[in-house]
Amino acid sequence: MAGVAQLEAFLAADPVVRVRLTSVKGSSPREAGTEMYVTAEALFGTIGGGRLEHIAIDAARALLASGDLAQVLDVPLGPEIGQCCGGRVEVSLQRMSEGDRAAALAEARAEAEAAPAVYILGAGHVGRALAAQLQHLPVRTVLIDQRAEELAQSTAQVETRQSAIPEIDIMTAPAGSAFVVLTHDHGLDFLLASAALERGDAAYVGLIGSDTKRAKFRSWCLKHCDGLTIEDLICPIGAGGSRDKRPAVIAAFVVADVIAALTSETAAEAPVRGNAPLIAAQ
């Protein structure tokens, strides 16, 4: 919950104005409900950037300087302000009370806890590169390995978990999770990939390897998994049309695929087991 900690530190400043898109008509950089926070010298979050955001920031700082408590802006997103979205937004500005700050933090914590989960199964070079990139995205990332020494090499601000039986981590993951399998052992890769596919509710299952490895895995599933289909398996992962095999490059392609899967309409409509929401509220 690094983002929550950063917001908590920001809201400790005094005073703070909450800037919120309360109404959106037509095209807009962000949707209704999007918020950012403004002090006299700093910003947290964004309502979409561009001229709209500059107008809102200037208005928020003018409100702080005047001592007023609230203001509502009606902003056309067209030639009038040098923006070409073509919509119209209503922006609420409100000086935050202690209660407002507590409510904002509670909402941020709830969103963080509801964020979709990405399980990286293997803390080798590519696994650590994935964790390094996913730490900046609105997902709950769990880096899992049987080897403590590999986990110790990760410096990403994500959950790390030494697990002797990572199949259990897969079985107990929330519905709609993403699983990226890239351990140090092909046999373990097959066990974990099949466990993720057998769930039937994963948003993404990826297995590191080649087309040959995919074919071997298909044969292995036919023999050991009662004909489990692997049609939903992504293998190879991180292709993207690139021949570059550096871990950071592979990770970049994989992260793009994972986030696309987690935020797709299909993922949003997938069945949910228990009370775990599939994607975080925006």
Score class of each variant (00 low, 15 high):
residue 240 G to E: 15
residue 130 L to Y: 11
residue 68 D to L: 00
residue 259 I to S: 14
residue 214 R to D: 04
residue 255 V to D: 15
residue 274 G to V: 11
residue 168 I to T: 06
residue 46 T to E: 04
residue 79 P to C: 05
residue 126 V to W: 03
residue 21 L to Y: 02
residue 178 A to M: 02
residue 105 L to E: 06
residue 157 Q to G: 02
residue 108 A to F: 03
residue 256 A to M: 07
residue 199 R to W: 13
residue 47 I to R: 14
residue 5 A to H: 14
residue 191 L to G: 04
residue 215 A to D: 01
residue 239 A to F: 11
residue 100 D to P: 00
residue 49 G to P: 05
residue 123 A to K: 06
residue 179 F to A: 03
residue 115 A to Y: 09
residue 35 E to S: 07
residue 241 G to K: 01
residue 92 S to F: 03
residue 99 G to L: 02
residue 77 L to I: 01
residue 87 G to I: 10
residue 125 H to Q: 13
residue 176 G to R: 14
residue 179 F to C: 09
residue 244 D to F: 13
residue 170 I to D: 01
residue 34 T to N: 07
residue 244 D to C: 11
residue 237 I to R: 06
residue 152 A to D: 11
residue 37 Y to P: 15
residue 112 A to L: 08
residue 51 R to M: 15
residue 111 E to M: 04
residue 219 S to M: 01
residue 139 V to I: 03
residue 68 D to G: 05
residue 260 A to W: 08
residue 132 A to L: 13
residue 259 I to F: 11
residue 246 R to T: 12
residue 269 E to C: 05
residue 148 A to I: 12
residue 117 A to M: 14
residue 46 T to C: 06
residue 136 H to C: 10
residue 135 Q to I: 03
residue 16 V to N: 10
residue 164 A to C: 01
residue 107 E to H: 08
residue 244 D to A: 07
residue 3 G to S: 15
residue 161 R to F: 00
residue 49 G to D: 04
residue 197 L to P: 06
residue 201 D to S: 13
residue 127 G to L: 06
residue 258 V to Q: 10
residue 22 T to M: 07
residue 56 A to T: 07
residue 57 I to R: 11
residue 158 V to R: 05
residue 110 A to H: 02
residue 65 A to F: 06
residue 9 A to Q: 14
residue 19 V to C: 09
residue 273 R to V: 11
residue 233 L to R: 04
residue 42 A to N: 13
residue 5 A to D: 15
residue 58 D to H: 10
residue 221 C to R: 02
residue 147 R to C: 04
residue 192 L to C: 09
residue 104 A to Y: 01
residue 133 Q to R: 13
residue 193 A to E: 00
residue 129 A to W: 08
residue 196 A to V: 02
residue 51 R to H: 14
residue 138 P to S: 13
